[in-house]
Simulated scan of single mutants.
Amino acid sequence: MRSLTTTLSTQHHCFHYHTQTTFLTTLIPIQSLSFRTHNHNFRLLCFSSDPSPPPPPLVVVGSANADIYVEIERLPREVGDDAYGSLVTDALRRGGVLLDGLTVVPSATTGHAVVMLESNGQNSIIYIGGANLSSWPRILPRQHLDLVAQAGIVLLQREIPDFVNAQVAQAARSAGVPVVLDAGGMDGPLPPELLNFVDILSPNETELGRLTGMPTESFEEISRAALKCHELVSSSWDFGDQIRLKCFCVICYLNARGIHLVWISKGAKLVLAKLGHKGSALFVEGRNPIQQPAILSKTVIDTTGAGDTFTSAFAVALVEGKSHRECLRFAAAAACLCVQVKGASPSMPDRISVLDLLNSQ
């Protein structure tokens, strides 16, 4: 999760900072989340104000960054307990986010992302992980995993270590909680101990090509790469004190309550591909893909955070029981609104704005 932003202006430059710390959050079912600095009032997309019955919480395990925006004429080639941390946690609390899993790490700095923004809204980001990458315990506390088990859906991304994501994903699978993994972040291959517990893998075109080693220029190539994601699988799993088994569709292991059955997919059962101005597509194993055209904006100010907004909006609609096609449309509308506002956090729209856009289509 990236995006708590304040703005500092000088005569020649405008720097947008959003703060990063290591945390686990729960979004509560309210209309929208808002927080204020002395100059700004921001809102974050979340649940409806009065769902009936209320859906279970959407749990996010990830990072929040301090972004520095640099406005430039063209993008360069790809490059491989502080004030920011206080800013992000204060803003989250004021916004109504439950920080039950927050850990403050005095010995580590809050991470940063430098966002280089072109005049047409396209961006390139240099990510410095800080505490998000270096300060997680090797074994997550029981109370954090219990929070995951109570979720309606869990959102993960790769700006935190894969071993953290793997523990969270396994805890979610054991509790029957769907897991969505945004593929953004680290460039390395997805470890099997993580991928085997992911229900929805959400890459953009570039990330899909990098993960599979396949071209992703045309929709046919994207479809073949998505099929590759369905097939990615390890030959075995190691459950520590549980039972080590070879690759089958069901794993059973013993615990204090007897035999526990866990269904294991061969890879990501669903691939949610974000294709920019070409729209999006959901690839469901064994079925025809569901395509969603982009809802295009007349003006693109900043594409930073559009992918995060899309994946999050899809998850919100999914946890509320919407069909896959409805989820894609809701997410497309949210992303359309996102690119019209500068900054990763202020650009995330509220529910009313998304529904107004959908109703006008």
Rank of each mutant, 00 (worst) to 15 (best):
R2P: 12
L4Q: 03
T7E: 13
T7I: 11
Y17H: 09
T22W: 01
F23W: 05
T25F: 00
L27F: 14
I30N: 02
L33D: 01
N41V: 10
L44K: 06
C46D: 02
C46Y: 05
C46F: 02
S48K: 11
S48A: 14
S52F: 05
G62W: 09
D67F: 05
E71W: 09
E71I: 01
E71K: 15
L75I: 10
V79Q: 11
D81H: 13
A83D: 13
G85Q: 09
S86D: 10
R93N: 06
R94Q: 15
G95E: 03
V97W: 07
D100R: 11
G101E: 05
T103F: 01
V105G: 00
H112G: 01
A113E: 04
M116H: 09
S119D: 12
S119H: 13
G121N: 06
S134P: 00
R142C: 11
H144K: 10
L147S: 14
L147Q: 13
A149P: 04
A149Q: 15
Q150F: 00
L156Y: 07
L156E: 02
I160G: 08
Q170L: 15
A171H: 02
A172D: 04
G176K: 10
V177H: 05
V180A: 07
D182M: 03
D182Q: 13
A183M: 08
M186P: 00
M186S: 15
D187T: 10
G188V: 13
G188S: 14
G188C: 12
L190R: 03
P192N: 12
L194V: 06
N196C: 09
N196T: 11
I200A: 07
I200E: 02
E205Q: 15
M214T: 02
P215C: 08
F219G: 00
E220M: 06
S223I: 01
A225M: 07
V233S: 15
F239M: 10
G240N: 06
L245M: 11
V250H: 12
Y253I: 04
Y253Q: 13
N255I: 04
G267Q: 08
K269Q: 13
L270K: 15
L275P: 00
G276W: 03
G286L: 11
P289I: 12
Q292C: 15
Q292E: 14
P293L: 09
P293A: 12
A294E: 07
I301T: 14
T304G: 05
G307Y: 08
G307I: 03
D308E: 10
D308G: 03
F310S: 05
A313D: 06
V319H: 01
E320H: 15
E320V: 00
G321C: 09
G321E: 08
K322Y: 11
S323K: 07
F330H: 03
L337W: 06
L337V: 02
A344F: 06
A344T: 14
S345P: 01
P349W: 11
Q361Y: 01
